[in-house]
């Protein structure tokens, strides 16, 4: 079995993002970037499946500018065998990403495609489902447990009401939740080895995918600041306000 894992380079989750002064977007210069957190879970799961003997090869793919390669290198350092970097410029919407991934799937013919459930930058939560649609493959989103069976996966999904279990036939797309596993650290020797693993580069144009955005980003702003309300004198007044003014209890 072969697993393709898609990883995205995003602003590190610890960095407080800053809106550009001209409201055209978010400042990304000199900002620490990292792998999108649930994508780390996706890689980890693929590596665990390989370690259990159920998969033979893991291919990590990223889409973006040159520096996005760091994300693939990190995936290679924790156990992916090979990397692909599809070079693009500017914003690439999930629809275009899923078209690129589709083209790669057609070339690589993986049995499974894993990725994080959502990127922490645009918060779209679309790519996995879109790729599943384009390939007409089953989709198991928000996976918090994956059991690999003979020709299928049993996937436990984190849904609003609790947990849901579905069975999807292979080939399938899985999007991973943070609760799926605890990603391992890349060891120093493995980082060294990762530098020598193959990393193919191509562009979206090579794959015949138009990445022109369909959605115009008109402006990006800081969320409005919340203003202080009132101070109440005592508990009775508080309960009265909550009951009769705010009507929340």
């Amino acid at each position: 079995m072969k697993i393709l894992v898609a990883v995205k380079r995003v602003i590190d989750y610890n960095v407080q993002i800053r809106v550009k002064e001209d409201n055209s977007g978010i400042v990304t210069d000199n900002v620490k970037m990292s792998t999108n957190p649930p994508d780390d879970n996706a890689i980890e799961e693929a590596v665990r499946i390989k370690e259990s003997g159920k998969a033979k090869e893991i291919v990590a793919i990223t889409i973006g500018e040159d520096k996005a390669q760091e994300t693939v290198r990190k995936a290679l350092a924790v156990g992916a065998d090979r990397g692909i970097h599809v070079k693009t410029e500017g914003i690439v919407e999930p629809l275009a990403v899923s078209k690129i991934l589709k083209a790669i799937v057609e070339k690589e013919k993986p049995d499974l495609v894993f990725m994080g459930k959502q990127a922490i930058d645009d918060d779209c939560n679309q790519t996995g489902q879109m790729l599943a649609a384009l390939l007409n493959w089953p989709q198991a989103t928000f996976a918090s447990k994956i059991e690999v069976k003979d020709k299928s996966l049993e996937v436990t999904r984190e849904v609003d009401e609790g947990l849901e279990t579905i069975e999807v036939k292979i080939p399938a797309i899985v999007t991973c939740d943070l609760r799926l596993n605890e990603p391992r650290y890349a060891s120093l020797p493995n980082i060294m080895k990762a530098k020598k693993k193959p990393l193919d580069q191509m562009s979206a144009t090579d794959l015949g995918v138009d990445t022109k955005p369909r959605i115009e980003q008109i402006k990006v702003e800081e969320p409005p600041k919340r203003k202080a309300g009132i101070k109440v004198a005592n508990v009775a007044e508080l309960v009265n306000k909550l009951k009769n003014e705010a009507k929340v209890i």
Partner: peptide, 9 residues
């Protein structure tokens, strides 16, 4: 050691 333990070198 946690599950993710990775020895230093």
């Amino acid at each position: 050691k946690k599950d993710s333990f990775e020895s230093g070198i």
